[in-house]
Design a protein around this nucleic acid. Structure first.
Lengths: 335, 335
DNA sequence: CTGTTAGCGCGTTCAT
DNA sequence: ATGAACGCGCTAACAG
């Protein structure tokens, strides 16, 4: 790091300004008060020499980096992308940088990756939707300060920022119920994913709360292809009376709609479809896709707020879950 | 960084193993030859104490970080996301981490951001599609080792990895020409974007090479909305005889198709439409969108290869441009 | 208010 | 083959 050619150090500045390194350091950090004349001389020397403090040396002395790491299973996921973006910008505003640690879906390497990242950075943002609770529990204890994203962790000593998927699903079901739907299908996501489990909880809650409804669960996935490939099963369910489908997310819903169109199933005429996440494309689908909007960027910013508190030695703040907002569009209609 | 509680240092290991710090260091780095007995003792002490070398101290001594930074104008862009992903994985395989520096579209801050990033990292991957050539030229010289992504820089002393947009556009025009189209419209991207300029060059080349064709340029943008909003202009062009539209990228094309459908314009019946980038959604559009595929992940990996060479003191390798591959789908048809 | 001194944790001579 | 000592660049504690 630093410059190619021999770096100019604080000693050079001190020499040129005719003062001690300590004085230079003081001017640099604005600690204590320094004689205006010295400040002048030092600043002159600094600009003359083009001096920049060594990050490494500072890190060694302070035991911190002003860098945090975001550990993520797949950078391709729009949710994580949005969070990373919001996090990166919020942290930057406080002078912190963000390192990305993509574990490439290797659940077994998440711990090692997180530990390694923690060793290089001051704190961790952990996205590990598939890690078993116990392992996560232990890991979190080892890498604190840390904020966990988008998954519950009962009794954990760690701030959690996420989305209230259960609530979102319930709100969505309510919406569809209001449109007259009674028989639903839920196209589920990755089996071990925590957010999928939360959605399923929402499904169960909805069924319990609204006696007149049924919700079939059909295996789906998280990507466009998964929705596309599930279409036949969905169509079969439709023939058996299902009138509305809730997909794990928008990508799945969009893939599903594509295949249904090929199969000649009209949306929403023959079947209402809703997604989750409200990705930009949802508005532009044909028909525009009803979805539950999730504030990705804001989640990232909120994660930073929590982490900053922790870094500053503050308390573990309460879990915060964002309630998804219904974006009712034309893919769902009165039955 | 490092652990919350007082870190265990190399001195602790040395003490417990009953040897000198130097020996521990040797064992750690596998330099020179060490007495097998000592190796044993040291390794035992290391695992017993759970010792991990301090990244900061190493950085200070070596003058490097094993970290590179990717400076990017907007993390929302699918192209940069894909490159980041490929880069991150390739670099990780060599023990390097990637820091993201999102400049949030602030062209004026790109230089400062890049310099700051370079100060913290061993090298830079620079995505600055809108920075004027001269400024980029100077910047590149100051932050080397650096690889520039996705834009030309004539005579620059820097490796460049990118996409041959001009060639891609030409191939696309050829394809459409083969389908019988003669009058085209190009929905252009961000005015100052280098890749847009390259595409325009492709447009000009195509017109020069194929005497019988015309290509109108219509102002567009880079996002779904931009395509949506340009639809009226596109439709007007259609009424004047344009039969095929090439959009700056797939997002624009998809937004355009959505609005055209609302306007009652049939694709490809009334108008053929093609995009660029081949985002996942392209295949799932209605009709499936013809596009030019770009190997995002591979570009990221290639960037790392170039950068690794540079870091190792190697030469500035030649520019490499990927030729987009035509993915002909149903949104374009014989006229 | 300022300079001197002593580490931060590690790699690396230089003797032994 | 091994250990002692120094230095990487900087900040914090202590005198003056």
């Amino acid at each position: 790091m630093s410059d190619r050619n021999r770096a100019v150090t604080i000693a050079d500045v001190a020499a040129r300004a005719g003062v001690s390194q300590a004085s230079v350091s003081r001017v640099l950090n604005g600690k204590q008060s320094v004689d205006p004349a010295i400040v002048q001389a030092v600043q002159a020397a600094i600009t003359a020499l083009g001096y920049t403090p060594s990050v490494a040396a500072r890190s060694l002395v302070h035991g911190r980096n002003d860098t945090i790491a975001m550990v993520v299973p797949d950078l391709e996921n729009p949710l994580f992308q949005g969070i990373l973006r919001g996090l990166s910008r919020a942290a930057a505003a406080d002078g912190y940088r963000v390192l990305v640690a993509d574990t490439a879906e290797q659940v077994d390497e998440e711990e090692a990756t997180a530990l390694e990242a923690r060793h290089r950075c001051d704190a961790i943002v952990l996205c590990a939707p598939r890690m078993p609770e116990e392992r996560l529990q232990r890991l979190v204890a080892r890498i604190a300060p840390v904020v966990v994203v988008n998954r519950p962790l009962p009794g954990a000593q760690v701030p959690i920022v996420g989305v209230d998927y259960a609530r979102g699903i319930r709100d969505l079901v309510d919406h569809l119920h209001g449109l007259g739907h009674r028989r639903f299908a839920f196209l589920s996501g990755p089996e071990l994913s925590a957010s999928n489990a939360e959605r399923l909880r929402g499904v169960a809650d909805a069924v319990a709360a609204e006696p007149g409804i049924t919700i079939d669960v059909i295996e789906g996935g998280s990507r466009l292809d998964d929705g596309y490939e599930a279409a036949e099963y969905v169509d079969a369910a439709r023939r058996e009376g299902v009138t509305a489908v809730i997909a794990f997310n928008d990508l799945v819903a969009l893939g599903l709609m594509t295949r249904l169109r090929e199969l000649g199933v009209e949306v929403p005429g023959d079947l209402s479809i809703a997604g989750f996440d409200d990705v930009p494309m949802a508005r532009f689908a044909t028909p525009p896709l009803t979805s539950m909007s999730v504030p990705r960027g804001e989640i990232g910013a909120q994660v930073w707020t929590r982490l900053r508190t922790l870094i500053a030695g503050g308390p573990i703040e309460h879990t915060v879950l964002y309630r998804p907002r219904l974006e009712a569009r034309e893919s769902t209609s009165r039955v």
